[in-house]
């Protein structure tokens, strides 16, 4: 039908031409508006969060960020305790998850028998699809008691001289449980990004290393890791960002608590878990504003981590793209 609209009739041509342009412009305008709205949304989020935190920012200033206090009775609030909890849980979770995730990625790209590759990849990605509330439910009702009864006492008696491994928790809710839960949540993310990075290492390079008489591990360490270094850094940052921002599962298993202590088996709170656990209890406006202030800190962290990870990814992609093109010419 479109062919009849632009039939080669010279008298109708200008009219058709205008209609054509009108359709193009409309689609571009509508699609462009959608894109602008999506971009605007990000700024609106930032603006709204800053506005919501305004009363607390005005009252406490930047001192809020490091103050260790959360007292609704005296109306004294600060993020220090939660910042510490966030750093402790997410960094330790990343430290455990990173080698495991890289191991999984190496398994999927280098070691797994052909028949296992696709199914195991699918299973690892399925792990990432499990909602955090389900992981949290499992964490509080299954994992927590196991850790409390078996793992925590064992770690305490073996490594109790390190302050991190203090006396075991009484309920199973602890910073330690939160770390294990976060590890499970970021493991599949880092693993699948690393897998894609390893798949991108040119076969030429791997063969070049093996032809020297190196073992597979020596090839991985000497050629694949350096090649994928930037991308792995980005994957780790994204995993860290996910751990920092996770609210629900952490709220379910961390137990809640205030203060800075190194004992992993004590209860605690992270920025995100503090917000989530206060969803029904917030009374005063200043308390709500303080909660939003916590959200603002979280937002700033996630922005920094995401943008830096994306910048690294783009740079790596560009470099590898160039590498591939050059390969194609040869």
């Amino acid at each position: 039908m479109s062919s009849t609209e632009i039939a080669p009739d010279s008298t109708r041509r200008p009219f058709t031409g205008r209609r054509v342009r009108f359709g193009d412009v409309s689609l571009q305008a509508v699609a462009g508006t959608a894109a602008a709205a999506a971009t605007f949304l990000v700024f609106l989020i930032a603006y709204k969060v800053v506005r919501g935190a305004q009363p607390a920012i005005g009252k406490y200033g930047l001192a809020f960020v490091t103050r260790v206090a959360w007292d609704p009775v005296k109306n004294v609030y600060g993020a220090g305790s939660f910042l510490f909890g966030t750093a402790l849980t997410s960094l330790l979770a990343l430290a455990i998850a990173a080698p495991l995730a890289i191991g999984i990625a190496l398994f999927l790209t280098e070691l797994a028998p052909r028949r296992l590759r696709a199914p195991v990849t699918a299973l690892i990605e399925t792990l990432a699809a499990i909602p955090s509330v389900v992981i949290g439910l499992w964490g509080i009702l299954v994992l927590g008691p196991i850790l409390r009864d078996h793992v925590e006492p064992a770690l305490h008696s073996a490594l109790g001289f390190i302050p991190l491994f203090g006396s075991p928790s009484s309920t199973g809710s602890s910073i330690f449980t939160a770390i294990v839960v976060l590890t499970i949540m970021i493991l599949p993310i880092v693993a699948s990004i690393s897998r894609e990075l390893f798949l991108g290492v040119p076969r030429d390079l791997k063969e070049g290393a093996l032809a020297l008489g190196t073992t597979r591990w020596e090839m991985v360490r000497g050629v694949m890791f350096p090649y994928a270094r930037g991308g792995i850094a980005a994957a780790l940052i994204l995993g860290l960002g996910r751990a920092v921002g996770e609210a629900i599962a952490v709220t379910q298993v961390i137990g809640g608590g205030l203060g800075i202590q190194l004992n992993l088996f004590a209860t605690g709170d992270t920025l995100a878990s503090k917000i989530a656990s206060s969803y029904q209890g917030a009374q005063s406006n200043i308390q709500i504003a303080s909660l939003v202030y916590l959200g603002l800190i979280l937002l700033v962290f996630s922005l920094i981590m995401n943008v830096s990870a994306q910048v690294i990814v783009r740079r790596v992609a560009r470099r590898q793209g160039v590498g591939l093109n050059r390969g194609g010419l040869g």
Binding site: D204, E207, G208, A209, L212, G213, T214, G222
Partner: peptide, 20 residues
């Protein structure tokens, strides 16, 4: 095969220097 390749080296069709 690692021992074999240690003694019998190889140069490939396309130059494949390591990114080092």
């Amino acid at each position: 095969p690692v021992a074999v390749r240690r003694n019998i080296g190889m140069v490939f069709q396309r130059p494949n220097p390591f990114p080092k």
